[in-house]
Design a protein around this nucleic acid. Structure first.
Length: 466
DNA sequence: TGAAATGTTGGGGCG
DNA sequence: ACGCCCCAACATTTC
């Protein structure tokens, strides 16, 4: 090859704005090969909902790239094997990609740097996070384990740079193998259960920016008031886009800060801080995942291995199907099943119910979320479940047990969220709809009595050293 | 980013 | 007018 070519390996960054690797590859000025490799190995390979969401997002990215005269090459298999073969086939002299942070990525990226690095320039870029995991350290140079000091440390760091623009002048595409058609990746379910997801979540980078702008312009100022009300559209609702990288964290951060500056100029105080704090929770999740890579599958502290989790598949199935007899829990689980999403407040409630009242292993819950969430993100999922179970780095204290009826009354007082997802109970009045004791036909009796479940959870947790 | 149990206070009914 | 009791409202402690 005389001119060379640059391979851009798309991973968890299915976008063209603020894509550091793509930006640098375009700047090289030699022909481009844009490739996505579907990896099917490992315990945390994409779940069913995520596969659907990947399909839709890849389709949107493909369309966006075609608009610029580019083509997204699709491959399936081991990334190292596929990229090695691709590099040889198209004679590329550079492989650029954005860094990932999941446990098996450390070894994968090292192997790729080693094997392909002998034949071409291999560069990885930081584009997924606001702060690299190593950039945030305690005074003694160790990783943070508690959110609030971590958050304060982030605020002391230089402000994240603004997002990179999408490329304006694209090099020509390089000659490359045809790859697979999107359908051949077989990401779509065989039975069409995704209608509810499609209705709620338009896929792709453009939809992501529409969602972000709408939140920043219309709703961010009410975030503090509305974010905990599952019947309202009070959260940003961008996690599905962040999770596949259709949207970058920098774009979110920057949009919020621009809005904050406009508010300040208008003499008003901005509500950006409350929301950007949530973005830092995501950073913290990646920080923990990077420094403690055993945590997706095992408790943060080894002594929790001995915890007496119960194992009962029929109990688990009732939780999964939204038939526990606890209205807010069942509403949440059904929202998840039908839309691939669940309101964050409700996620905490259903997780607490699983780990505390039902006493089931948090990993059973984590795996179900992984299979059903379109925003399944290993860092966030791990942090959330270990927090709920009480075994994480910065975990909820063992005695913090949500009462799903109190939570329901407090955050969904008119029962709007419950009525939306529990048609059996929709005719009950605002008071009765929350109460498991008020029975209606077709809706199950509570699996576990609230007070008794709490008592038993405390007894189990008392067996642990603390 | 909890909830229940327990303690404290103060207003008002009432003998 | 006074002391007593009840209890709601709030605060603190405990799990």
């Amino acid at each position: 090859m005389t001119t060379g070519a640059t391979i851009v390996w798309f991973r968890q960054d299915l976008r063209i704005h603020d894509h550091a690797a793509l930006h640098a590859a375009v700047a090289r000025g030699v022909p481009l090969v844009l490739v996505y490799v579907l990896e099917e190995q490992g315990p945390w390979r994409a779940g069913a909902a995520m596969r659907y969401w990947l399909h839709e997002t890849l389709a949107a990215l493909s369309t966006d790239l075609q608009r610029h005269g580019q083509r997204l090459l699709l491959l399936r298999g081991d990334a190292q094997v596929e990229l090695t073969r691709l590099r040889a086939a198209c004679g590329a002299d550079a492989l650029y990609f954005n860094r990932r942070y999941e446990p098996h990525d450390h070894a994968l990226d090292a192997r790729i740097a080693q094997t392909l690095g002998a034949r071409c320039e291999v560069r990885s870029f930081a584009s997924h996070l606001l702060f690299e995991p190593e950039a945030v350290q305690t005074g003694t140079g160790t990783a943070y384990r508690v959110f609030t000091p971590y958050y304060r440390a982030c605020l002391q760091l230089p402000t994240p740079r603004p997002p990179l623009p999408a490329p304006r002048r694209w090099p020509a595409p390089a000659g490359a193998p045809a790859g697979l058609a999107l359908e051949e990746l077989q990401l779509l379910p065989r039975i069409a259960w995704a209608g509810g997801i499609a209705a709620r979540w338009p896929a792709g980078e453009q939809a992501a920016h529409v969602a972000l702008d709408e939140f920043i312009d219309e709703r961010m100022n009410d975030y503090a008031r509305d974010r905990d009300r599952p019947s309202l559209n009070g959260t940003a609702g961008i996690s599905p886009y962040l999770c596949v990288g259709a949207l970058s964290a920098r774009s979110c951060w920057h949009a919020a800060h621009q809005a904050a500056l406009r508010e300040r100029d208008a003499g008003r105080t901005s509500a950006a801080e409350g929301w950007t704090r949530q973005l830092i929770w995501r950073e913290f999740a990646y920080h923990l995942l990077h420094h403690f890579p055993h945590t997706p599958d095992a408790p943060f502290r080894a002594e929790w291995q001995a915890f007496p989790w119960l194992h009962d598949d029929s109990v688990l199935r009732r939780w999964q199907r939204g038939m526990t007899g606890i209205p807010l829990v069942d509403a949440g689980m059904r929202e998840l099943w039908h839309t691939g999403y669940m309101h964050n407040r409700v996620r905490m409630v259903v997780a607490s119910w699983l780990c505390k009242h039902l006493g089931l292993h948090w990993l059973a819950g984590a795996r179900w979320f992984w299979d059903t969430l379109i925003d399944a993100d290993l860092a966030n999922n791990t942090l959330g479940w270990q927090w709920s179970a009480g075994c994480g780095a910065d975990a909820a204290p063992y005695f913090r047990i949500f009462n799903p009826v109190s939570q329901s009354v407090k955050f969904d007082p008119a029962g709007l969220y419950l009525r939306r997802w529990l048609p059996e109970r929709a005719a009950l009045d605002d008071k009765a709809i929350h109460q498991p004791g008020v029975r209606v036909s077709g809706y199950p009796e509570a699996m576990v009595d609230l007070a008794e479940g709490r008592r038993q959870a405390l007894a189990r947790y008392a067996s642990l050293p603390r």
